[in-house]
Design a protein around this nucleic acid. Structure first.
Length: 638
RNA sequence: GCCCACGUAGCUCAGUCGGCAGAGCAUUUGCAUGGUAAGCAAAAGGUCACCAGUUCGAUUCUGGUCGUGGGCUCCA
């Protein structure tokens, strides 16, 4: 019998009979692997397990545990959902149904508008289909045949996609009575999808274009095992619990007032305290790291925005003008033109550079009402902006320095999992190619130097310059784009900026925009979710609540309070005529780091009974010992 | 802006298949002076988002407006 050799990922070679399926090969490697297999990578190509091997090859069995495995699994789950929808609503027409980062969706065009109850019915039908154990089979046909096939079924979206494909041959996957156009690969059988849940219904435009028809999108999630689904649903609960809008209200940090304008943040005393702590720290560190700090106006005349080009390419995001003495003024969507005006108040020598000018600049940008979201998506926000003006010789060090500063800042704030995204020159761009080259080189080198994980988006930069974005991962694994370091070849040209070089000639400076936290509003929103409202002591608006047991200790509590204020700490007293239990409970729900109870015993012995956040017991210690402990937490930024 | 859902006391939410509007917490007052997650009681608190329409009667049904939430697009 003819045999062939298969090379496995661990470099071992397996000899197998000619023409067996990859599913059978998986079985030869191990029974549990066979069971967990969702697809295979054959000579580097992702294929179905039903594929047969007819020549020597390298092979990796893909399971749900890998990114690729999840994609295949969720994609098959979306087909499963589509089949169930088609059974329940025969007039449903399908658009696209891909796997996404967390699960899958399918965009569907149908006469009935779906309700949450329908999702339950669809889930039940999906369950039935998995119990029917339908084989999922790949079929190939010519593009013309496929067009005829889907036309006959009234699948207009599939036909539209087929008409745009440039290939001759397409594949389609069939399970029972259902067939869908798909590149694949897919699971072998519907029974492999053991547990799933349909999560939400949303509107989505066909091809994401608001000129097109709005389709109904169903989002779902699926797993090979029930317990994984349970874990995921618990994760969603955790996300809900940490929602900064919910915590913002519970901890009395901020509010928004749609009656007087959505997307605008009102900082309550505790939120404002947190913001003040952050900003004071931010300023101190900027001075320490070679920056100067600027303040610039909130509005500027139209001529400024014409020169900067914002009235050309950014007008849609700017609010309409206001007339002052017959001139049009615009509220600023960015700080950069103002910083440039300051640059131009004097002639700069190469000896003056680099200039690092930072500003906590509040800007206003128009955002469509539907996208506003708590503090994360607003219409008025404060950028922790800075502009660096430097010579070509300096940019490499400058970029490294910005990156180092940023990474240090994230670490201090409690974020350590960081990834870089480099976006390079797009086809349409301004600025000389050599300058782009030099800028991109400096960005690449800085990333390499910082030893960061990086993803490169070739051609993904803005027309005016390349950039690095940093994405940070929060405590529950979500990624947020925060720091951005962006070159600008446009504004120095438009404003005709220059410095005098060593040669006595005029030279164009390099200009870099950078925001480390992004915006204060958005960052605080993320900080709330990252810590779930349990801020480390140095950021906590209230660090300790002082509780008296009875009226007799009132003066003692006031004395401790005054001493802590004097040390620059942030205590709060609770002298209300309530039970100790009651006051403790409230302090716990407020997530205050330390709860101090002062009763008769403590008052007499000069101690406090300290209960640390997250602990159910309390420790009695000398007052000075407590001060020392809290000062140390403050110092070490824990 | 568009699709779907939602909008009831300061907060969290019941409820009314069309007939005087409900709870818990918070607030105020009284009693209780209390030792580590809610002491007892009373009072007060609402044009049921807004504007029309249908109806003897609308918080409830219909239409519209505004807002919120989940998405689509864009981004800090």
């Amino acid at each position: 019998m003819k045999t062939i050799n298969i090379k496995l990922p661990d470099s071992t070679v397996k000899e197998v009979p000619y023409g067996i399926t990859l599913y059978e090969v998986a079985g030869l490697i191990g029974k549990s692997l066979q069971k967990a297999a969702v697809a295979a990578e054959l000579n580097g190509n992702l294929v179905d397990l039903s594929s047969v091997v007819t020549e020597d090859c390298s092979l990796a069995i893909i399971t749900f545990d890998s990114e690729k495995g999840k994609e295949v699994f969720w994609h098959s789950a979306s087909h499963l959902m589509a089949q169930a929808v088609k059974r329940l609503f025969p007039d449903a027409k399908f658009a696209i149904g891909p796997a996404i980062e967390n699960g899958f969706y399918y965009d569907i065009d149908m006469s009935k508008t779906l309700t949450p109850d329908d999702l339950v019915a669809i889930e039940e039908e999906m369950k039935k289909i998995t119990e029917e154990k339908l084989d999922i089979k790949r079929e190939e046909m010519s593009r013309g045949e496929a067009i005829d096939f889907f036309s006959s079924k009234g699948e207009v979206y599939k036909v539209e996609m087929l008409n745009e494909l440039v290939v001759d041959k397409v594949s389609l996957y069939r399970q029972g009575e259902f067939a869908d156009l798909c590149r694949g690969p897919h699971l072998r059988n519907t029974e492999q999808i053991k547990s799933f849940k349909l999560l939400s219904i949303a509107g989505a435009y066909w091809r994401g274009d608001e000129k097109n028809k709005m389709l109904q999108r169903i989002y779902g999630i699926a797993f090979p095992e029930e317990k994984e689904l349970k874990k995921y649903l618990e994760f969603l609960e955790e996300v809900k619990k940490r929602d900064h809008r919910k915590l913002g209200k519970e901890l009395d940090l901020f509010s928004t007032h749609d009656d007087v304008g959505g997307g605008l943040i009102y900082w309550h005393p505790k939120g404002a305290r947190l913001r003040t702590i952050l900003e004071e720290w931010w300023r101190k560190e900027h001075f320490k790291n070679g920056y100067e700090i600027l303040y610039t106006p909130h509005i500027g005349r139209s001529i400024l925005w014409e020169t900067s080009g914002h009235l050309g390419f950014y007008k849609d995001n700017m609010y309409s003008s206001m007339e002052i003495d017959g001139n049009d003024y615009y509220i600023k969507p960015m700080n950069c033109p103002f910083h440039i005006k300051i640059y131009q108040t004097s002639l700069h020598s190469y000896r003056d550079l680099p200039l690092r000018w930072a500003e906590l600049g509040t800007v206003y940008r128009y955002e469509k009402s539907g996208v506003l979201h708590g503090m994360l998506r607003v219409r008025g926000f404060t950028q922790d902006d800075a502009h660096i003006f430097c010579t070509p010789e300096q940019i490499e060090d400058e970029i490294k320095e910005v990156l180092r500063f940023s990474l240090w800042m994230w670490k201090t704030l409690g974020f350590t999992d960081i990834k870089a995204y480099l976006a390079t020159k797009p086809e349409k761009s301004v600025g000389e190619p050599q300058r782009w080259e030099k800028a991109q080189e400096s960005l690449r080198k800085a990333i390499e130097w910082a030893n960061l994980k990086v993803e490169v988006d070739e051609g993904g930069g803005a027309f005016y310059g390349p950039k690095i974005d940093l994405k940070i991962r929060d405590a529950i694994g979500r990624e947020w784009q925060m720091t951005t370091i962006q070159f600008d070849f446009n504004l120095p040209e438009r404003f005709d900026m220059y410095y005098i070089g060593e040669d006595g000639q005029r030279h164009r400076p390099f200009m870099v925009h950078r925001a480390l936290l992004g915006s204060i509003e958005r960052f605080v929103g993320i900080l709330i979710e990252h810590y779930g409202g349990k801020f480390p002591l140095w950021l906590s608006p209230v660090q300790a609540i002082l509780i008296n047991v009875s009226g007799e200790q009132e003066s003692k509590v006031k004395e401790i309070y005054a001493a802590m204020i004097d040390k620059g700490l942030r205590p709060q007293m609770d002298l209300r005529n309530e039970s100790v239990g009651y006051k403790i409970r409230e302090a716990v729900t407020q997530k205050v780091p330390y709860i101090c109870v002062i009763g008769k015993n403590e008052a007499e012995s000069g101690t406090v009974s300290v209960r640390k956040r997250g602990e159910n017991n309390s420790v009695t210690m000398a007052i000075d010992e407590f001060y020392a402990m809290i000062m140390e937490d403050m110092e070490s930024k824990r």
